[in-house]
Simulated scan of single mutants.
Amino acid sequence: MLSIECTEQHTGARISGDYWDLDELVSAVYVVIGDENRYYDYHGARQRILNVCYNLRKAIQGEKNIELISNGVHREMLKRHNMIAPEKNVYFSVEILWPELIFTALALDDFIKLHNEMIDDSLWNIHIGIIRKFQGNVLDCLKYQLSDEHNTVISQLIQNRTLNYFRYATQYVDLLNLEYINLSIEERKEHLAAYAIRLMIEDEAYVILKEEILATASVTKNEIHELPLSMKYPEHIDW
């Protein structure tokens, strides 16, 4: 079963599951976000979602975390059925920074709407159902880190969300990631809600950053999503 839990230092959340849990999620995402040429003005958001999928794939390949989880089988059960079977399953997991994970959950909503409008508007679309469960897990994990007041605000913003990630300056997610990493654990607990909210509104910092990126893009003739930030991520993150 796919699960998402906050990391020990509140730097991000740990996504874990068995091979089929993670593979099912990644496969559903690939279907819903579609070909890279279909929704070109969402290319920045699409690329960030794919980066998370890349990390999930790395986890499946055993390049991240591996743990053994009890599967409910016990010796008496095996004796009763005269069989030999493992009592634990292999689970894979990977940590994702909180701003990155929140952005991913929100951006997937845009692609679900696009998929419904252009590909398949069935209420029983299995791929969308898998992604909705993932989004629910993210929100459920997030709410346990926040106060009731902050949860109410964020729930209302999600339900009434008007900002989509059409031609969004996704470099802003990097900016938030790097800011968040540099906070103390106490500051992360205190300000996590603010970081989630900043991903659902165009605040002053976002507007300034996007204007700078657009100015550079007009000179270099790059698309907005093609210009990286000059800031670098640390080689080691204390999760």
Rank of each mutant, 00 (worst) to 15 (best):
M83C: 09
A59G: 10
A85V: 11
K58T: 06
E76V: 02
N82E: 11
L78G: 05
N51Y: 15
Q61C: 05
L50A: 12
L56S: 03
I60V: 09
R57N: 15
R75V: 02
N65P: 00
K64E: 15
I66M: 15
C53G: 12
I66Y: 00
L50D: 10
R80D: 06
H74G: 03
A59N: 04
R48D: 03
L68C: 01
E63D: 12
H74R: 03
V73M: 08
N65D: 13
I84Q: 11
P86V: 13
Q61S: 12
I66G: 08
M83P: 00
I84C: 04
V52E: 03
L68M: 14
V52S: 06
E67M: 11
N82H: 11
R80V: 00
Q47T: 09
G62I: 08
V73K: 07
V52L: 09
L50Q: 12
N51W: 13
G72Y: 02
K58A: 14
L56A: 01
C53T: 14
P86M: 04
V52A: 07
N51L: 15
G62A: 09
M83R: 14
E63S: 10
Q47L: 11
I69G: 02
I60H: 02
Q47D: 11
K64Y: 07
A85G: 00
R57V: 14
Q47G: 10
E63F: 12
I66A: 09
N82A: 06
N55V: 00
C53M: 13
G62T: 07
K79L: 13
C53P: 08
R75L: 11
V73G: 01
Y54C: 03
H81I: 04
K79R: 10
M83A: 10
C53F: 07
I69Y: 06
K64C: 09
L78S: 03
A59K: 04
I60G: 01
A59Q: 01
N71A: 04
I69D: 02
E63W: 07
V73Q: 04
A85D: 10
E76C: 02
G72V: 01
A85M: 13
N65L: 07
A85Y: 13
N71F: 05
Q61G: 08
M83I: 15
N82D: 08
V52W: 01
A59D: 06
L56G: 03
R46V: 00
A59I: 05
K64P: 00
R48A: 02
N65A: 02
H81T: 03
C53A: 15
